[in-house]
């Protein structure tokens, strides 16, 4: 890599000591960034520099760095996971930017996701929603024949599409209402579309929606910014499914 390709960037990063204190945007300049570096590698380089200077490195979430775990987040220039469609922050590369660019980096924001430090948020709320119903109970015993339960191919594919949700929370971050409907609808759909998910279908959708409301997420206004920001391209048709399943479960419920 010839050095003339290396970029100098102006970063505006949200710094916040902890959950209690107020944060602020802090300016940094970083040079020598290769277009081949990933966005997170660029932050690593910044952090190395900060550590060398004796200052506090920027805290941010990441794990697999290959777009499958859903740990990385970041609001990059006001877009969840940055400008590229169906791409997580860890899969975003600096070739998207040019020398001298200013990049604003903020945490995903929602009442339900408190900032822990800098760019790190607490996404416990998603786990709480899953715990409220996003599972199937399976009896132990001898495994039955794999082909005993028939699944229509189309449903299998729709369920698989819904199941590709990695729970990163980009849907909530990009929604102007901080609504978690896309996440909840994907987690409801992946089971509702399969015969194995039928037994608990009504309870699941009721409990997950009520939990979502209780945790302080906003109400969906069908803008589809969630779908457009989702690194897995999950469709808002799942939200429509959630809406009708919830209505049906609520109307027919015995409690």
């Amino acid at each position: 890599m010839s050095s003339e390709n290396l970029m100098t960037l102006n970063l505006k990063i949200w710094r916040q000591k902890n959950n209690k204190e107020k944060g602020e945007i802090v300016d940094y300049t970083i040079d020598g960034i290769s277009p081949d570096a990933s966005f997170l590698e660029m932050l690593d380089i910044l952090n190395e520099k900060l550590i060398k200077e004796g200052s506090d490195p920027v805290a941010y979430d990441h794990d697999c760095r290959e777009g499958i775990c859903g740990m990385c987040s970041l609001m990059i220039n006001g877009q969840a996971h940055g400008p590229e469609a169906e791409t997580t922050t860890c899969q975003l590369h600096m070739r998207k930017y040019k020398d001298g660019d200013t990049i604003v980096i903020e945490p995903f924001r929602a009442r339900a996701f408190p900032v822990l430090k800098d760019l790190m948020i607490d996404r416990q709320a998603f786990d709480d929603i899953i715990a409220a119903g996003g599972f199937v109970n399976v009896n132990t015993g001898n495994p039955q024949d794999a082909n005993a339960i028939l699944v229509p191919k189309e449903n299998a594919e729709l369920a698989m599409d819904a199941a590709s949700c990695i729970g990163c929370a980009a849907c909530v971050a990009s929604c102007k209402n901080a609504s978690a409907m896309l996440f909840v609808s994907a987690k409801v759909s992946q089971l509702a579309l399969l015969p194995q998910g039928q037994v608990e279908a009504d309870e699941r959708v009721k409990n997950m929606v009520l939990k979502m409301d209780e945790l302080g997420f906003g109400n969906c206004t069908n803008e589809a910014e969630c779908e457009a920001s989702c690194p897995k391209g999950i469709s808002i048709s799942n939200i429509a499914r959630l809406n009708r399943d919830f209505l049906k479960a609520a109307v027919t419920s015995n409690d």
Binding site: K12, W14, I25, M75, N77, G78, Q79, A85, V104, E106, R109, A110, R111, A112, V115, S174, K176, N177, A178, S179, G216, F217, G218, E223, A224, E225, C226, E227, A228, S229
Partner: peptide
Amino acid sequence: NARPDKYFVKQKTGHGA
């Protein structure tokens, strides 16, 4: 109320809202 702390910059994707 669902987002008490607003974003410093917010940009639409252009494919949703």
